[in-house]
Design a binder for these strands. Structure first.
Lengths: 215, 215
DNA sequence: GTTTGTGAAGTATTTCACAGCC
DNA sequence: GGCTGTGAAATACTTCACAAAC
């Protein structure tokens, strides 16, 4: 296997983050292909679906092993299983939500997390009017119980849907509770130790980075 | 000004897209600084806020001109105005929403778009039970009126919050109506002509690209 | 003394192109 | 004949380092 600038860090192969960010997209296309009943797919066909080059796809896969057969392509089922394994998506992750406002409620009733392997098992809010309410089958807990619940339930991932002003405080709290992956819906950058991953889901940034290209 | 691989295309300077994607983040930090009453800021201070290097910030700005003063730094007010101008955020953009389900309703009542310069002025749905309802001060229109309304109101940007299966059809429709910037909330990749920008707002992809790094 | 703006240097990422295998 | 896997080449992006400006 190619080594390049690829090095071992704590027993884990250092794959470029851009590559990791593309894997879930490949996964999604493969899931669609599997549902359509396609059994074998080439890097070229995948490239058409995802609007990238066949070479990029093959190179991306090559960071993890050899999954195809020359002259044939990739077995959809096999590649799907391998990618799920690589991304650690072959099990179920438990997720805790902080913030049960309008957005938080939409998140709690969103049906797209479960089939992707993410189960929201707890929700927290600091507003006493929310606490104790049932939303999407989950009872809203007070913030002061967060450590207890996260550790009791074995929650590894946080979703933060609180006002911008509260985000950093909430994220710090989650980090204290040993959560190392956080999705932040608020339009603010947060600071975390580098062993904690944060992804922002931010429609305003998305809009503001497109207007540059508009006439 | 440095030329590098920077070339003119249809009278527009070809700035790397990564740079354009960072500008809104600088804008946000500058807005926070302005509110705090800070008048001058150095690339180093900006770098600390946004977790990047001073050199990157200076290089990014250099694609557009010279905005600072040696020995001093950048005037927050002036840089803010320049960045708003570069990103074409010194006016107001009109936005049309397609899909008034739970998510669409959360989007319509989200208070974060207006201060950023985006005004949602129309909403569409194909479900006859939604049509005619008032949501967030806007009356939901039937899909067949989309061209008429988009052109009548001068809408330049679309937000799509419909089920995955309908996204491509809706996006095609928006493109026909001359919309050239689209935010897609559904977990699917869409295909558009390359003069149409699409940004996905997708919490599932965000989650799936973090689990790789979890133990 | 401080900090910008920027060529040049250094990395990272993508694409090429082809040997090897099916 | 077709398609993968991969070094090597090409391109893109980031960081360095320093002259010029204040």
């Amino acid at each position: 296997m190619a080594q390049e600038h690829v090095i071992h860090i704590e027993g884990n192969l250092a794959v470029p983050e851009v590559v990791v960010m593309r894997l879930p997209q490949y996964l999604r296309v493969l899931e669609a292909l599997a549902e359509e009943g396609t059994e074998v797919v080439s890097s070229e066909q995948l490239g058409l679906r995802i609007e990238t080059t066949p070479a990029q796809i093959r190179k991306d896969f090559s960071y993890f092993g050899k999954f195809g057969k020359q002259g044939r392509g990739y077995s959809v089922r096999y590649l799907l299983a391998e990618l799920r394994h690589i991304l650690k998506l072959d099990g179920e992750w438990k997720v805790g939500l902080v913030g049960v406002g309008r957005l938080g409620r939409a998140i709690l009733s969103y049906q797209g997390f479960a089939p992707a392997g993410f189960k929201v098992v707890a929700a927290f809010d600091s507003d006493s009017r929310q606490i104790g309410q049932m939303v999407g089958g989950i009872m809203v807990q007070p913030m002061h119980r967060i450590q207890e619940v996260i550790q009791g339930e074995g929650i590894q991932i946080g979703i933060v849907a609180v006002p911008a002003a509260d985000v950093q405080r909430v994220v710090d709290r989650l980090v204290e509770c040993n959560v190392r992956a956080i999705v932040n819906y608020a339009p603010v950058a947060v600071h975390t130790p580098q062993n904690v991953k944060v992804r922002n889901v931010d429609p305003v940034l998305a809009l503001q980075s497109m207007t540059f290209y508009l006439p």
